[in-house]
Design a protein around this nucleic acid. Structure first.
Lengths: 145, 145
DNA sequence: ATCGTTCGGTCAAGTTCGTCGAGCATGACA
DNA sequence: TGTCATGCTCGACGAACTTGACCGAACGAT
């Protein structure tokens, strides 16, 4: 499915997606056309979803993060889902099993802003909010094995 | 702090971090040395944390995701934190205010694997697990404004 | 066993790209 | 008004990428 070379390539790209093909090919011990072709195939197979940039929310002024669980009031499920999608400060949200229906991450600048956003949600469901104090595990990949 | 051009550059890079300087500079209407310099400064200022690649966990065999909340037993906080960090299937984890102390995301292949991981955690704290059914909001950035 | 095909790989060429230095426009300020 | 800092463009040169031709190993069918 993914051979040793592919894994090496991915690990290098996770750290620096803008590395040149030449340097990348030297690190993995292949020629640059070969690596180029492997990259093409990894993208084609959707192993690589995209090359992107990791931006620090703090640098954008979003110095606070919260995790919000939402349990929509009866009949409100679709309205809540729409509201969540339309709230740009909610930067990710999953629909889950269990009592809570949605669990989302919220980036915000001030408590006042948090309050405003939660007020809107609270009209349509029960919310439960936790402020993030630190992130012991930063986003990482599970083992590539 | 971040002018219009910087925002445009970032938006383009979010979609394609491997775009050439030349093409990027054409899109933003600057010369390539200028864009190169802006990129350098965005990295220097840590607005850009890194260029990376977005890999589909499903392509790695991790077809299931769960969100786990953990409330360590008295005295177990540091042990739980260590355990979480050492569990590679936990791909992100925040320490939060409220009843739960940790909220993490878990990628796994089979229910059996989930069970094994949760068993280990349950020795040291109370856990509450929700299986992800869908992701209405995929990872995105808050407004760059 | 041998032939043909496919799948990765290399190499070399031509082209494209990035970087560097020089020079120019603008605005802040003594 | 002169000076300086900043941020830009331009052009040239060296570096990197893409493309096409070719090679060899693995493998299935005859």
């Amino acid at each position: 499915m993914l051979d040793e070379l592919d894994r090496t390539i991915l690990e290098i790209l996770i750290d620096d997606a803008r590395i040149s093909l030449k340097e990348l090919s030297q690190k993995v011990g292949l020629s640059s056309p070969s690596v180029s072709e492997r990259l093409r195939r990894l993208e084609e197979r959707k192993v690589i979803r995209s090359f992107t940039v990791d931006i620090d929310p703090v640098a954008l002024g979003y110095s606070l993060t919260a995790i919000v669980r939402v349990r929509p009031l009866p009949g409100m499920l679709h309205i809540v889902e729409k509201l969540i999608k339309e709230t740009p400060e909610i930067t990710e949200c999953d629909k889950v099993t269990g009592d809570d229906c949605f669990i989302g991450k919220l980036q915000f600048r001030t408590m006042e802003q948090l309050d405003t956003i939660l007020d809107r949600l609270a009209e349509k469901g029960e919310t439960n909010t936790s402020i993030v104090k630190s992130s012991p595990v930063k986003r990482r990949l599970p083992p590539l094995s």
